[in-house]
Write a protein that binds this DNA or RNA. Structure first.
Lengths: 149, 149
DNA sequence: ATACAAAAATGTAATGATTACAATAAAGAG
DNA sequence: CTCTTTATTGTAATCATTACATTTTTGTAT
């Protein structure tokens, strides 16, 4: 799920059309990038990846588009911590893991639970996130601890 | 769960002691405030609530203490969106709901799921968050929509 | 008590992601 | 082709959070 995915321009335009959004070159470029790079990129990463091809692309536009996509449910905005938001094109709902040490993000294919109670609330989406140490950082930490002894 | 809770200084000091933390006046004050105001306060709210009683209390100290508490597992740091982090003294694990419109946060008493796969990861905590519209905002939105017709 | 070393708190200044806003450009309707 | 709406752009501001150097407090040993 973290490997590169392919998505055609036709598919991207269809997704935009279904959401009632006009397929501006910027929107097509952003959605194509996010959908074909399932690395949960940040707005900054998306902008710097696309600015070569679209030299006038502004960061404001990237933010506008990402928020628009998130509101219409095309992509998901993931705020793991106080740092930058990450964006995910996620046709299949799933959970996430983020390493506290290196910040890496791993998809966890798993059903998202229904809320136990919804007294009048209208739920639009669910975020399930695990945090801790990834395998690599855990081993490094163990190595350091044993060095101290 | 959202109503005011009482916690004694003795209990607060015991929690700190169990975590191996010295009971400085600032730490006692911050933990007392967070534990007795289960409104998921922000660092800013905590600081301005305590600065009257502790005039020299700095915001840096509040952040230092909150991060320390979060690392030792005494409290939970909740980042719902790109805005400020919220802090929760949560002896019983539970989920959260946040309204997209008014930002209100509602506790949902519910078990948190185990990860489906943990290939070498070491999970320290879980965050389960539902987003959408609270009852009040949903009704307001409906009223506005019907006005337009 | 007193001095010293470690831990904690403080204030200020910087950082950096995000947003506000006004101006420009592009697209669709008539 | 003109008009109106929608989208993009660039710059400047915002504001939560962090970095850092200094000061204060605490605990320990003399």
């Amino acid at each position: 799920m973290t490997k590169k995915r392919n998505i055609t321009t036709v598919e991207v335009r269809a997704i935009l059309a279904e959401a009632g959004l006009r397929p501006s070159p910027q929107r097509v470029a952003v959605l194509t990038y996010v959908a074909s790079h399932p690395i949960h990129p940040t707005a900054e990463e998306i902008h710097s990846a696309l600015v070569d091809e679209y030299p006038t692309l502004s960061k404001t536009t990237v933010y506008n588009i990402l928020h628009l996509f998130a509101e219409t449910g095309i992509i998901e905005e993931l705020q793991f911590d106080a740092a930058q938001a990450h964006f995910d094109y996620a046709p299949v709902p799933h959970a996430h893991f983020q390493c506290r040490h290196c910040g890496c993000i791993i998809d966890i294919e798993q059903m998202l639970p229904e809320p136990a109670t919804t007294e009048g609330m209208h739920i639009a989406n669910v975020m399930l996130c695990y945090k801790g140490l990834c395998e690599k950082c855990y081993k490094e930490q163990c190595a350091e601890l044993s060095k101290e002894n």
